[in-house]
């Protein structure tokens, strides 16, 4: 079951990420001790989340590819469940929701058999056509449009978009001598996470002008620019180790991940604002708010995937 052939670059990258995280944990603990009057809850929570992400990530890639698919499918399942628990739903759609859940294993199955054509149209076309048909056959028309569209939006973000992470692993290894799909996946997830924290830190330090005042008042133009710049620098530095991207291409990848991460973040904020919760963890405390952790990836995963796919596969 164990796959010992994890590419060396990916091993080093993972070790590097763990080392970074240990340093970050130590710094935050020290800061909290030195300045007990200041609140470091936000940072502590983020660090806790990164530990979780890195553990899930290692689980996802260290074993056989089928294990990775199960882990990714489970992540999609948790995100979709949280989404459905947050939004208004209809009693009449009970069985429709069952079919929607069923789309998760099916979507990851297409990844498993590397059927790209089906993977890319299954949710946007077939699920999109099938679920409203089921609703109509049940016959409840009140709230039909809202139910059909919210359900599809949820499937698209939490299942279709996130499953692009898994498809990176299904890409042929020989096109990326620097470490295959594992390395691309690490590159994507690492840069997306770094981008989140870089935007947060730049915004906290130099933030003046609000970027999206009505959606997410904490986001600033300064944070966005600083974050995208940091992410792009790292993207360029890491690209030769982990990806087949050229220098110019890696600049574009960095900007894409930086901007995409920001937009994914504020899109999920808009959803929560619409529903009337601040973070998905307040409505579901203890459930961790997995949507908050994955919001950036719902944009960066498909964008980065298609960028690399177009250029090199």
């Amino acid at each position: 079951m164990t796959r010992l052939s994890l590419p060396p670059q990916v091993m080093y990258a993972l070790l590097g990420a763990v080392a970074l995280l240990i340093i970050a944990s130590a710094v935050v603990l020290a800061l909290a001790r030195i300045r007990p009057e200041r609140d470091y809850t936000e940072l502590k929570l983020r660090i806790k989340t990164w530990w979780l992400i890195i553990i899930v990530f290692c689980l996802a890639i260290a074993f056989h590819r089928d294990v990775s698919l199960v882990v990714f499918a489970f992540v999609s399942f948790l995100a979709f469940k949280e989404y459905l628990s947050l939004i208004p739903t209809r009693r009449a759609d009970h069985r429709v929701l069952f079919w929607a859940y069923l789309a998760i294993p099916v979507q990851y199955y297409w990844v498993g058999i590397e059927w790209y054509g089906m993977f890319i149209i299954f949710i946007p076309v077939f699920a999109f056509l099938y679920l409203p048909m089921k609703m109509v056959l049940i016959g409840e028309t009140q709230g039909f449009l809202r139910a059909a569209s919210t359900l599809h939006w949820g499937l698209m973000t939490t299942v279709f978009c996130l499953s692009h992470m898994a498809y990176l692993l299904a890409l042929p290894d020989d096109r990326n001598p620097a470490g295959g799909g594992d390395a691309l996946l690490f590159y994507l997830v690492f840069l997306t996470q770094i981008n989140d924290v870089a935007q947060y830190v730049w915004g906290k330090s130099f933030g003046r002008h609000k970027a999206t005042p009505t959606v997410s008042p904490n986001k600033t133009i300064e944070g966005l620019i600083g974050g995208v710049a940091t992410t792009t620098l790292l993207a360029v530095a890491l690209a030769p180790w982990l990806t087949p991207l050229t220098r110019i291409e890696s600049v574009a990848a960095g900007v894409l991940i930086g901007m995409g991460g920001f937009i994914g973040d504020v899109t999920m904020s808009a959803l929560k604002r619409d529903i009337g919760v601040k973070d998905s963890g307040t409505l579901l405390p203890g459930h961790g708010g997995i949507l908050d952790r994955l919001d950036s990836l719902t944009y960066t995963a498909p964008l980065f995937f298609h960028f690399v796919y177009y250029l090199h596969y």
Binding site: F77, K81, L84, S85, R95, F98, Y101
Partner: peptide, 18 residues
């Protein structure tokens, strides 16, 4: 709260909700 949404009376298939 939520269990009634997951499997209301008359349904035999649970649908996940938190």
């Amino acid at each position: 709260h939520g269990l009634g949404k997951s499997m209301p009376r008359g349904e035999w298939l649970p649908v996940p909700y938190f």
